[in-house]
Nucleic acid binder design. Structure first.
Length: 596
DNA sequence: AGCTGGATTGGG
DNA sequence: AGAACCCAATCCAGCT
């Protein structure tokens, strides 16, 4: 299956024979002009063998190397390698995603300013991805026409080896190698999980979805056009407006229609309309609700995004500056609660639905080593804990005060309550206040594991420096102050949201390993629509910032639920060591993800 | 025709 | 209810 393309024959033989020489710590994947090549690296990062992978045999070759030694696979872009492998039935345990890790290391304040990783410009390109909704594997994977080859990061083997070497040097020479090692490993695990989530899909009952739509909107009209209940709401609105031809889907036109009948709102938003007393309000709010459901998650969405009983969105790890995931297509991260009823386990399978209560303030307590706040958070509702210490009077006040502290509220009830938190939890509040001050001054802040906020834009910096000049106008200074405060709120939130995203990645990665280690069920109990790799074992089906859904054979449901909780405890230890902070989960084992 | 930005509503 | 942070998707208006 293997043949050498360069020197090092003898060492290659030793490696492939699995003999006395240590198994490779890493296998770097890449291509040259004639196909796929793999380079084995030892624990010091030295290349010990180079192997050409015969065309068409990648799946079998990777499966064999994975089984033999469990290396960490190094490649330029996980979706471009792993999508096809999973489709071929091959799962890998660990990888190093050069593109994602480059982005972290290049920006991290923990990395030496002169580190060569910062100058590797070809790795700064945005991801070329966004696979189509059809579920087809990325078509650009190994075709050689090279039409858009310059768009993404390079998958040339020598480029990959050089970049990996730069990244290892950047980590080793950084202020906190262990944190960056943890972060790059977690980020790479996330890259694997994002591809796996799409491959397995979220079990989706199209008939249940159709019932939700029909109940809310009315029967779907056969020849297009509006469903009955939506049309009825529209008719009521037009009657109340006294205009049978009124346009309801154009904000400017609707606004003019409203003004004509004396509803003097400044916008057509739900909040403002709700304050008005006019017969048009109720049917209009109903119309907007139904119209939204139809256009965002109606039958067209169902036809486009749900196939063969699975919703398969495209997840984009680190798609958000803070490190949170984004999604591209399908709106995976904004499924309305109304539709959760359509998330249904396959027959003989269960869903484990779990979310972390108040993840961000818990992370803040641990980051700041604020034992008063972590004590209030211990094993229960954090907001109730804050009330018990007497800092504020009610749970509602505690919630609005904590959110205000993390988001930078200065006005309203929240702004009034934040000073009381400062007295009760000076360390935690000091951490976010410091982050805000640094941001206002144009500086950058860094998460617990080392992801650094982007520097301010040139426009921002110019506005700040101009505002200090003698001839600066009042307006210049006002604008500069506002922009400074805006950026302060951003950096204030960045450290907390970004570290929470790191905790969630660690949780997810640990959970993924626990699930993979559970024994498979027989094919008789399989869920084949989850794909070859996941048909016979518990697998992740959804990840949403602080929530996961696991799809599991019913026989393993309790074990899977336990794994979710154990993984949370493990993530807490991994990030925060012995610091006493709890991350209590709400875990439900259910057939449908609808809120109980 | 295709892009951008605003408005709105869904998610955390 | 809002405010305050991070978003995506949709539709429309206004532009090139």
């Amino acid at each position: 299956m293997e043949r050498a393309v360069s020197d090092g024959e003898t060492r290659r033989e030793a490696v492939t024979a699995g003999g006395a020489v240590a198994q490779p710590a890493w296998i770097v994947m890449g291509r040259d002009s004639s196909g796929i090549i793999a380079a084995d690296l030892d624990g010091d990062g030295l290349e010990v063998a180079r192997t050409r992978v015969p065309a068409g045999e990648l799946d079998a070759w990777v499966a064999a190397r994975e089984a033999a030694s469990g290396p960490r696979w190094v490649w330029h872009d996980t979706p471009q390698w792993y999508t096809a492998l999973l489709d071929g039935g091959v799962r890998v345990a660990r990888c190093h995603d050069l593109r994602l890790c480059h982005a972290i290391l290049r920006g991290s304040a923990l990395v030496t300013p002169t580190a060569s990783v910062r100058d590797a410009v070809r790795w700064d390109a945005a991801t070329p991805i966004a696979a189509e909704s059809s579920g087809a594997p990325a078509p650009t994977l190994f075709d050689l026409d090279g039409g858009t080859a310059s768009a993404g990061p390079p998958d040339d083997l020598d480029e990959a080896l050089r970049e990996f070497s730069r990244q290892r040097a950047a980590i080793a020479g950084s202020e906190a190698p262990s944190r960056l090692r943890l972060l790059t490993a977690a980020e790479s695990a996330g890259a694997l999980i994002a591809v796996e989530l799409r491959c397995a899909g979220l079990p989706w009952d199209a008939a249940a979805h159709d019932r939700i739509l029909t109940d809310a909107l009315g029967e779907r009209p056969a020849g297009g056009g509006q469903p009955a209940r939506l049309a009825a709401a529209a008719a009521q609105v037009r009657a109340a407006l006294g205009d049978p031809a009124a346009s309801l889907d154009s904000q400017p036109k609707l606004l003019r229609s409203l003004h004509r009948v004396g509803v003097l709102v400044e916008s057509t938003s739900r909040w403002e309309l709700a304050e008005q007393r006019h017969p048009v309000v109720e049917p209009l709010l109903e119309y907007k609700k139904l119209s939204r459901l139809l256009s965002a998650n109606g039958w067209a969405w169902l036809a486009e995004w749900v196939h063969d009983g699975r919703f398969r969105p495209v997840y984009v790890p680190a798609g958000v500056v803070t490190g949170r995931w984004a999604s591209s297509g399908g709106g995976a991260l904004q499924l309305p609660r109304q539709l959760r009823e359509a998330v249904r386990a396959d027959p003989g399978w269960k869903l484990v639905v779990a979310d972390v209560a108040q993840l961000e303030p818990r992370v803040l307590a641990a980051m700041a080593s604020d034992t008063a706040l972590s004590e209030a958070a211990r094993g229960r509702d954090l907001y109730a804990g804050i009330v018990d210490t007497g800092a504020v009077a009610t749970r509602a006040e505690a919630k609005v005060a904590i959110l205000g502290a993390m988001y930078g509220a200065t006005t309203g009830e929240s702004g009034r309550l934040v000073p009381r938190l400062r007295r009760a939890y000076p360390r935690a509040m000091g951490l976010v206040d410091d982050a805000a001050r640094i941001g206002e001054d144009g500086g950058s802040v860094t998460t617990w594991l080392g992801r650094t906020s982007p520097p301010p834009s040139g426009v921002w910096a110019t506005a700040q420096s101009q505002a200090t000049e003698a001839e600066a106008s009042e307006a210049d200074q006002t604008r500069a102050r506002r922009w400074a405060r805006d950026r302060g709120r951003f950096t204030r939130n960045f450290v907390v949201q970004g570290t929470a995203a790191e905790w969630a990645l660690a949780w997810l990665a640990d959970l993924r390993t626990r699930l993979a280690d559970m024994p498979p069920v027989t094919t008789a109990d399989a869920a084949p629509r989850s794909g070859r790799v996941f048909a016979t074992r518990p697998h992740l089906a959804l990840f949403l910032h602080d929530e996961v859904i696991v799809h599991t054979p019913a026989a393993y449901a309790d074990e899977a639920a336990q794994a979710v909780a154990d993984a949370a405890a493990s993530a807490a230890r991994l990030l925060f060591g012995g610091f006493p902070i709890d991350f209590p989960l709400e875990v439900r084992v259910v057939d449908s993800a609808a809120k109980a």
